[in-house]
Nucleic acid binder design. Structure first.
Lengths: 116, 116
DNA sequence: GCGAAGTGCAACCAAAGGTTGCGCCTCGCG
DNA sequence: CGCGAGGCGCAACCTTTGGTTGCACTTCGC
């Protein structure tokens, strides 16, 4: 239901740090582990590990340049992830609405039989 | 950016098991830790811990009934969570679109100066 | 050529998810 | 009314994961 095979993608973007990293890469363009760590509350190593995770699920892609490693967001994968989030959100929203309708129907029924 | 104070809410629904639990509670109505564990690949204790987490952030709410504890989804909180997910998804989507436009503009420029 | 900058790898720590075992309530039936 | 069974919570323990520190290796630039 909802998320099945793409669970890796979900758990990858589940981490707040990783979401922030993606935000930074999207707004500031490609960056290295060091440059990202300067804007995050964690060390370079931690950032590097997160980048490895994101790379493994294909959300970012590394471009070695001399002694540096420039990471960039994979737009297609991120679009998929964004779509998934929206989908889950929409699913829950729809179910909530359905439940609400049912609850209202029951309430109406009870009101009808109240006098008996 | 994007998610700040409501980070607890995010991380609460970040866990796949917890999302599934919410799905089960939404589709099957209120349930206990035991009833949920029967439909999940984890033990009752694990489910109980997850329910505690969800309860702490207000996504579910417990109703003691004799020796049982019925858990139910808090619709308002879940709606907030769903909205947040949609928001992040939309934000990323917008940024991707913007980047794409810029990239296309640059590409157009390069094509213009190709002959020089 | 050599120091400085950027990475990766390994060891170590702490927190979170998961399991098992136990004891306490509560229900229901003889 | 007593007592077994079902449902829960608590506690101890294990494993995975995010985080840090320390070190060795490459690459740039003077």
């Amino acid at each position: 239901m909802s998320t099945a095979v793409d669970d890796d993608l979900w758990s990858a973007i589940g981490d707040p740090i990783r979401r922030t990293m993606i935000d930074l890469l999207l707004t500031g363009g490609p960056g290295t582990a060091t440059s990202l760590s300067e804007r995050l509350p964690v060390t370079r190593q931690a950032v590097s590990k997160h980048l490895a995770v994101l790379d493994r699920v294909g959300l970012v892609h590394a471009a070695p340049a001399g002694r540096e490693r420039h990471y960039q967001v994979d737009e297609a994968q991120l679009a998929r992830a964004a779509a998934q989030m929206s989908a889950v959100g929409a699913t829950w929203d729809a179910r909530l609405r359905r439940i609400k309708r049912i609850a209202e129907a029951i309430d109406r029924n009870r009101t009808d039989n109240k006098g008996e």
